[in-house]
Simulated assay, not measured.
Amino acid sequence: MGFEMALTALAESGLSRASVLAPLHVLSYSALLGAELYQTFIMTKVCYESLPRSAFTTVQKRLFPIYFRGQAAFLLLTAVTVPPHGPLTLQSGMDSWLPFAVAGVTALLNLLIYGPRTRQIMVDRIHQGLIYLLVKSRASANFEVVSFSNRDLERREGRKRGSPAQPTDDMMRLNREFYRNHAMSIHLNLISISAMIW
Rank of each mutant, 00 (worst) to 15 (best):
S140G: 00
T8Y: 12
G2H: 00
E36V: 01
Q60A: 15
R119M: 10
Y48I: 00
L190N: 13
L33Y: 03
R173A: 01
T89A: 12
Y38H: 10
M171P: 05
L112C: 00
L111K: 09
A55K: 13
R173Y: 01
S137H: 13
I191P: 03
A18V: 08
I193L: 12
P164I: 03
C47N: 04
I197V: 15
T58K: 13
K160W: 05
R180C: 10
Y29W: 10
V105W: 03
R161S: 10
I42P: 01
H187F: 10
P87A: 06
V123T: 14
G104E: 05
L21F: 12
F143S: 09
N150P: 03
N110P: 00
W198G: 09
S96P: 01
A101T: 13
A9Y: 09
S19F: 05
I42G: 03
T57V: 11
A101M: 14
G115V: 13
S140R: 13
L77C: 03
A101L: 15
E154Q: 14
M94V: 15
F178H: 15
F143Q: 02
S149N: 00
P167K: 11
G34C: 07
H187M: 11
M5H: 08
W97H: 06
V102G: 01
M171R: 07
H187N: 07
Q60D: 03
L10A: 14
Q128L: 09
V20E: 03
T168P: 00
D152M: 08
A73V: 15
L21R: 10
F3T: 00
A79M: 12
N189R: 12
M5I: 07
L33M: 10
Q39G: 01
I131N: 08
E12R: 14
Y67W: 12
S13K: 06
L27N: 00
S140A: 15
I186P: 00
